[in-house]
Design a protein around this nucleic acid. Structure first.
Ligand SMILES: [Mn+2]
Ligand SMILES: [Mn+2]
Ligand SMILES: [Zn+2]
Ligand SMILES: [Zn+2]
Lengths: 136, 136
DNA sequence: TTTTAAATAATAATAAATACTATTTATTTC
DNA sequence: GAAATAAATAGTATTTATTATTATTTAAAA
């Protein structure tokens, strides 16, 4: 997703435009992987040294709500990345640096209906690994 | 896994026998699902009102290390359950109460070798839902 | 029974995440 | 463009999960 499209999406949801929000999104476009709140905080501090960590927390939550960012847990920490807008798929994730690679298989294709006693609301399929860079 | 087998496994790894450990394992046998540390703490307090929360934390970690318990994240919290010793499989999990049901499909069966640029170290496939009891 | 190494309790320390409030700012309205 | 308003932000406090520390107790070995 492009930054402008994401900002437009935000606007439609009634959020205001701010430079910091744009910058946060820009940070995510430059990374093909998950970032923690602190990762984003460190990066945006280069441009806005006085930004509050709380602001980063809030905005990442808003972005998630607006389905601009998606999240997962990496080592017990919530991490964020740009939502994949193309067809539903899953990822292999480097547990060291958060880098991702798409996997064009969804195990739900083999699941028919709801298992007895349960109503399905979601699923997660993630392969974990170490990328070549982190392997060095 | 039976409690005695698990305690035996612990012994082999050099851990001592304690009543509290046995009780913790007993708690897990009575529940077909994941429990948080606090869940276990509350339950065991009925028998050992002076037990320390830290003791629960420590023992659950030991059990995980000894592969007696397995874990996942539920609503950002680490939760534990008895390890499945039968053939590798996955689960549908009630996000309300942690109850689980086996799914005899593993998406890794369709993955051959390592994707370029990555070394696979693990995977997670979980279906989330709400069980009939929690739906009421 | 004595020894000793691990288990526990009690408490302190960390770290992620959330809550609160005064101030600032983007956007609306005139 | 200036004033009004509602949201965004900074700064700080609080909460909550988890880990660390240390003195005491206890299971198991000698
Ligand atoms: Mn993708
Ligand atoms: Mn199972
Ligand atoms: Zn990596
Ligand atoms: Zn349930």
């Amino acid at each position: 997703m492009k930054v402008e499209v994401a900002m437009q999406k935000l606007k439609e949801k009634g959020y205001k435009y701010t430079q910091k929000r744009e910058k946060i999104l820009e940070i995510f476009t430059k990374v093909n992987g998950y970032l923690s709140v602190k990762d984003v905080y460190k990066k945006i501090k280069q441009d806005y040294p006085t930004i509050s960590l709380n602001t980063v927390y809030l905005n990442l939550s808003f972005f998630e709500e607006a389905e601009i960012l998606e999240t997962t847990d990496l080592n017990g920490e919530k991490v964020y990345r740009f939502s994949c807008e193309d067809q539903h798929h899953h990822h292999i994730i480097c547990t060291e640096c958060g880098k991702v690679k798409a996997i064009n298989i969804c195990p739900m294709d083999a699941i028919y209906g709801n298992p007895p006693g349960f109503t399905i609301t979601g699923h997660k399929f993630e392969i974990y690994g170490c990328c070549d860079e982190c392997n060095k």
